[in-house]
Write a protein that binds this DNA or RNA. Structure first.
Lengths: 251, 251
DNA sequence: CCAATAGTGTCTGTAAGACAATATTGG
DNA sequence: CCAATATTGTCTTACAGACACTATTGG
């Protein structure tokens, strides 16, 4: 850390800084990735969309603060996956005062409809496609530098699909390979070869474990019923599942 | 960020938080990776080693603060590579007050001997091997949670060697493939197959560019003189140079 | 039976690791 | 010439992507 000098400095010798957390909460609803956003009720950026977040409390760890803020918005108690994304502290990013915000990425399966929390006029799951991540070129404006934070979160998630089992965090306890593939396809925004994906996933040690169960009739139009899997204990995927687009054909 | 409520809140309504930066500066000196540490002159942790760092100034960006603190220790003006590592804010990590510190990783070639800055009794390049990263099991104790920060930095650097051209940041403008290999070997702490490494590096588009120059007599004991290369424009390596150890033989 | 989805078999090209062989260079 | 380092050739194996084919299941 720091503070090598003045062994008994006074905190008030230094300008006030607000320490906050912001959360990019991602989930999949109906094959489509969504992010939790709130509609700001106050200036600045009144009525525009923003990431949920808030002040870090005195004796609260950073991750704890992120989970608390998330819970206040969604009433979700635990997120299967939470990680620190990065810290945003450019002077002027909040016009009111110096704010240093630790951004987090949270991922969970089928999160419930959010309920408006005390500090948000409205909280809602918004498809990533409406924020510039997808086929549509629609791009809802976000408050502050939240567009940059969201972009970092989406890229982090996309990258981590390659070499970690993070995709399973979007799914229920038991899932089919097709459901897993849908996570990859919707986040990477491109179709994957079903047969090759199937074999590849099953060949990565510790990625998925066959439960022996069979999924109920998935669709209404026939088709073989799929086996159900659960997440394995691997934390890193070897070999990785590389993105088709990021793999330039040795061009 | 946050601050959805109280449109005209008073910063002093919230408990004082110190915002700092810490820097893990890595360089290679004589084939051996070193980290810049300072000897603390004051309590707490008086006389133990710590990472350089300090308060973020009022109108200073996070990266700017990191570079400034680094410059104060080493008189180094620019680091070829600087990235944010993560933020450490567990309550109690500094016994004096709540400190939230944004840790950075800096990499540079052959950095000069540090000069003791104003806020450090002594600053010095310390081999990573003396901190638990290497063959030796020596482990100098570090102040605060700096051991965890250093561990994160080393792992980040090791991982980034695989898929980014970060290794070239440790080297001068022009370098040989053998020098590049020495970076990988010393940080990964394992020998690499020289012939295969050579071909692999040259086959990754945009990793290194042949300058047409030939290195002067490298050793005193003969040997063909190597070609000199400079860093290419790739930001991501395709294909990656995977660590031997991280690649379990599909076990 | 037909349509649709799940899962397996093969084949081809790329790339990694092992090892051999060639090219230089100081002494 | 000898020792040491640089660079290139070959061969074997692993894995990704393409495609064909088999297995189920609803209607």
């Amino acid at each position: 850390m720091a503070v090598e000098e003045q062994p008994e400095y006074d905190p008030h010798d230094y300008p006030p800084v607000a320490a906050t957390v912001d959360i990019v909460a991602l989930t999949i609803r109906g094959e489509v990735p969504h992010v939790l956003l709130i509609r700001r009720g106050e200036t600045p950026h009144k009525n525009s969309w923003a990431l949920p977040g808030g002040f870090i409390r005195p004796d609260e760890d950073l991750a704890t603060a992120a989970l608390r803020e998330l819970a206040e918005e969604t009433h979700l108690i635990v997120a299967p996956h939470l990680e620190q994304l990065g810290t945003y502290g450019t002077p002027g990013r909040d016009p009111r005062m110096r704010v240093i915000s630790v951004a987090h990425l949270a991922i969970a399966a089928g999160l419930p409809e959010p309920k408006s929390g005390s500090d948000a006029a409205d909280a809602q799951w918004v498809p990533l496609s409406r924020l510039g991540f997808g086929d549509s070129d629609e791009t809802l404006p976000l408050a502050f530098d939240h567009a940059a934070i969201l972009a970092a979160a989406v890229e982090r998630a996309r990258a981590k699909l390659e070499y970690t089992p993070i995709a399973t965090s979007f799914l229920p306890q038991e899932f089919t390979i097709a459901q897993l593939r849908a996570i990859y396809e919707s986040l990477w925004n491109e179709p994957l070869h079903a047969a090759n994906f199937h074999r590849k996933v099953r060949s990565v040690p510790g990625f998925v474990i066959d439960t022996g169960h069979i999924a109920p009739s998935g669709t209404d139009k026939g088709g073989r019923r799929a086996r159900l899997y659960r997440a394995g204990d691997a934390t890193l995927l070897h070999p990785a599942l590389l993105r088709p687009s990021t793999t330039p054909p040795t061009a």
